[in-house]
Design a binder for these strands. Structure first.
Length: 449
RNA sequence: GGCAAGUUUACCGAGUGGCUAGGUGUGUGGCUGCAGACCAUAAUACGGGGGUUCAAGUCCCUCACUUGCCUCCA
């Protein structure tokens, strides 16, 4: 299996630290508002990656942090009058609900920043002891001059960055030094005691404190959105490798591309901000998942009604084919159906190639196109084999290929109506039968004569 | 300005130097009372310009354009 790492800007053989174990960390959300479809894109991608790793025989431990204390939460708390702690819990709960609806359920542990303050304090102390960090009157900072490798993930160097920063009103030695601890005294916001006075953690330190605690100083893969490469992930590498003296902290850095809306960046000012909750009022979760997976996870993806519609139709086509496989998948079956072998190999080869889901989807259609015409001539075992393959693919993608029977329960009534319509048609009373058809269609029913 | 990713047929979107990606949409034919669904079938491509090669969408150079990051951001 080949996986692309941002650190080397190339695909590399996926070699893990400990045999078939994979320790995976993905940056979670800051819980000050509802999750949007960009979050959805990123977390669906990593959910699928985890699913595929597990399918391939890896035991994956997937941790996601929850940033439940930071400026945005505090600001929102002051605006709304809801205590910061309460606000964070509320949106954390809504976030997890949203993810469950999208069938994103692979995270083994959600780790809150505020539940790991002890580990954070401990890591800061060790950074000070080793001479990488210093205290000023308003906080504790990492001194990047002490870590010459700063910039290796994002291809930047300290000199060039300095010229773009303003040193005014900061107590830092160097403008690029970043906060490990922010001292906060006499303010109406949550603080924690520390050896340097009351305050709260800087943004970057929570992730390395959490990963060191659960994984140790080195682990297999770290993911997040493209926008986190600098400065967030750069700072993580700096902190962790400085404190442990071991490198690399992470071998595989995985970054998801952005989701745009109608070609524009999603932002509140453009009024094109779509939350997952809003999305799911109009579209099925599987449609959105399939839409996300029809683009490679590192590429930008453009969200539009039209694209969602295309995904819906594509998924429908797979489902209609799946329905033609009128067999039950049992324990044992034997098949050497060549067309299936060819396309399933293509499917898994594609997934092995940096999780190339669009190509894997194409392999499913390849199978459909090549096998559809001789489906009637296939043995039950061959059909079972096809169905088992599609079940695996569906599981990896986190969708279902079962036809969605949204009208279950009203079957008798529908049967009656369509019977009446058939009778009208056989009597050539098309005015009335077409009226029934139109009405049923406007109610969302499909007519397949 | 620095760094990064892109520019493929109407749209989305794969492409490891030589063999039809795939989907959606469209055309044509079939089935239909008609439309849809369904079945069959067809067409359109590689941003511009150089170069390497027997052969380039695929490698190299160059130009143009797009997007993102460089402050918080999935």
């Amino acid at each position: 299996m080949d996986v692309y790492s941002t650190l080397t800007r190339s695909k590399e053989d996926f070699v893990t630290i400990n045999k078939n174990r994979v320790n995976l960390f993905v940056c979670g959300p800051t819980v000050y508002d509802d999750a949007h479809i960009g979050h959805g894109r990123t977390y669906i991608s990593f959910d699928t990656i985890k699913r595929y790793l597990e399918y391939s025989g890896y035991a994956v431990f997937y941790i996601q942090n929850i940033t439940d204390i930071d400026d945005k939460i505090i600001n929102r708390s002051k605006e709304s009058g809801i205590p910061a702690h309460e606000l964070a819990r509320k949106f954390e709960k809504r976030y997890i609900e949203d993810m469950n609806k999208l069938n994103v359920n692979g995270v083994n542990l959600f780790a809150r920043a505020t539940d790991h303050v002890d580990e954070i304090l401990d890591q800061i102390q060790r950074l000070i002891d080793k001479g990488f960090a210093y205290e000023t009157e308003d906080g504790v900072y990492f001194e990047i001059e002490k870590f010459p490798e700063f910039g290796k993930l994002s291809n930047r160097n300290i000199e060039e960055l300095e010229s773009h920063r303003d040193l005014a009103d900061t107590t830092k030695k160097n403008p690029q030094d970043f906060a490990l601890w922010k001292k906060r005294v006499d303010v109406d916001e949550p603080t924690w005691p520390s050896p340097w006075g009351d305050g709260r953690p800087g943004w970057h330190i929570e992730d390395t404190a959490i990963t060191e605690y659960y994984f140790g100083p080195q682990y297999d893969a770290h993911g997040g959105g493209l926008d986190l490469i600098f400065p967030h992930h750069e700072a993580e590498i700096t902190q962790m490798e400085a404190v442990s003296g071991k490198a690399p902290m992470v071998k595989f850095w995985l970054h998801t591309g952005f989701l745009n809306v109608n070609g524009e960046k999603m932002s509140k000012s453009l009024n094109n901000f779509i939350t997952i909750r809003e999305l799911l009022k109009d579209y099925a979760p599987a449609t959105f998942r399939f839409f996300v997976l029809s683009t490679h996870y590192r590429s930008p993806i453009d969200f539009s009604k039209d694209s969602l519609h295309q995904s819906e139709k594509s998924l429908d086509r797979i489902r209609k084919y799946y329905e033609l496989l009128d067999v039950e998948v049992g324990e044992e079956f034997h098949s050497d159906y060549e067309i299936l072998d060819k396309w399933s190999k293509e499917f898994f080869d594609s997934m092995d190639d940096d999780f190339n889901t669009p190509k894997a989807i194409a392999a499913i259609f390849g199978l459909i196109n090549d096998s559809k015409s001789d489906l009637d001539n296939l043995s039950d075992d061959d059909k079972i084999a096809i169905k088992a393959f599609l079940d695996d693919a569906a599981h990896i993608f986190g969708v279902s290929f079962e036809l969605q029977d949204v009208n279950a329960g009203s079957d008798d009534l529908l049967d009656l109506i369509s019977e009446v319509r058939s009778e009208l048609r056989s009597n050539k009373q098309y005015d009335l039968s077409d009226k029934i058809r139109d009405s049923l269609q406007s109610l969302g029913y499909e007519i397949n004569d």
